[in-house]
Simulated scan of single mutants.
Amino acid sequence: MFQSLEVFKISSAMASHAATRQAVIATNMANADTPGYVARDIADFKTALDAAGDGTSMRATRTGHLSGGLGMHELSPQNAATPENPNGNAVSIEEEMVKAVNTQRQHERALAVYKSSLTILRSVVGRG
């Protein structure tokens, strides 16, 4: 009956994705004054999930792939719409802050889905 609970896998992967993206955003903000630094980002969760194959589960393709580390996603330079600073840096603190808030909301949403599903499962089993 409970062999495949995809909602837990997906919500866990979504929370892990949000944590990884927060780390990337924090790195961008920490390097806002580094000469020549170009802000990086990772693909949004939907794109990462679709790239996983069948669209319902993430697949580990190498060691450490789904462990929540930065190896989980490919970092790519952002298309900087803002002009570079005189030192060649293209990080916009304002844009990074907006992305950080959106990523925090994604993480909270993933946890809410996980907790709600766990409550439903407990009710079904009779331990809620």
Rank of each mutant, 00 (worst) to 15 (best):
residue 57 S to V: 12
residue 114 Y to A: 12
residue 114 Y to P: 07
residue 7 V to N: 09
residue 109 R to L: 14
residue 16 S to T: 14
residue 6 E to D: 14
residue 57 S to F: 00
residue 14 M to N: 08
residue 72 M to E: 13
residue 22 Q to D: 05
residue 109 R to E: 10
residue 32 A to D: 06
residue 23 A to I: 01
residue 61 T to G: 11
residue 23 A to V: 08
residue 55 G to L: 07
residue 105 R to T: 02
residue 39 A to H: 02
residue 66 L to C: 11
residue 106 Q to K: 03
residue 58 M to W: 05
residue 92 S to M: 05
residue 35 P to Y: 09
residue 124 V to G: 07
residue 46 K to F: 00
residue 98 V to C: 06
residue 61 T to C: 06
residue 33 D to S: 13
residue 118 L to V: 04
residue 60 A to N: 02
residue 29 M to N: 08
residue 100 A to W: 11
residue 124 V to P: 02
residue 89 N to E: 05
residue 66 L to F: 10
residue 55 G to R: 05
residue 36 G to E: 05
residue 75 L to Y: 04
residue 93 I to R: 13
residue 71 G to F: 01
residue 70 L to F: 01
residue 103 T to P: 01
residue 37 Y to G: 05
residue 4 S to Q: 15
residue 71 G to S: 13
residue 17 H to T: 10
residue 108 E to I: 05
residue 29 M to P: 06
residue 123 S to K: 15
residue 23 A to C: 00
residue 109 R to A: 15
residue 96 E to Y: 03
residue 97 M to P: 00
residue 59 R to S: 12
residue 16 S to M: 11
residue 62 R to Q: 13
residue 21 R to I: 02
residue 66 L to Y: 08
residue 100 A to K: 08
residue 106 Q to A: 12
residue 106 Q to S: 09
residue 119 T to K: 14
residue 109 R to D: 03
residue 9 K to A: 13
residue 40 R to I: 00
residue 96 E to F: 01
residue 96 E to I: 09
residue 109 R to P: 00
residue 66 L to Q: 12
residue 96 E to D: 07
residue 75 L to I: 04
residue 35 P to H: 08
residue 124 V to T: 14
residue 112 A to Y: 10
residue 101 V to E: 07
residue 114 Y to R: 10
residue 60 A to H: 02
residue 10 I to V: 15
residue 58 M to D: 04
residue 1 M to Q: 14
residue 126 G to Q: 08
residue 60 A to L: 07
residue 71 G to N: 08
residue 47 T to F: 02
residue 76 S to M: 08
residue 54 D to V: 05
residue 124 V to A: 15
residue 30 A to P: 07
residue 48 A to K: 06
residue 18 A to Q: 01
residue 51 A to V: 08
residue 107 H to Q: 11
residue 30 A to F: 04
residue 63 T to C: 00
residue 103 T to S: 03
residue 52 A to M: 06
residue 12 S to D: 10
residue 34 T to I: 10
residue 127 R to M: 13
residue 11 S to N: 10
residue 94 E to N: 07
residue 8 F to Y: 13
residue 59 R to N: 12
residue 42 I to L: 10
residue 51 A to F: 07
residue 118 L to A: 14
residue 62 R to K: 13
residue 4 S to T: 14
residue 93 I to S: 09
residue 10 I to Y: 01
residue 92 S to V: 03
residue 4 S to C: 00
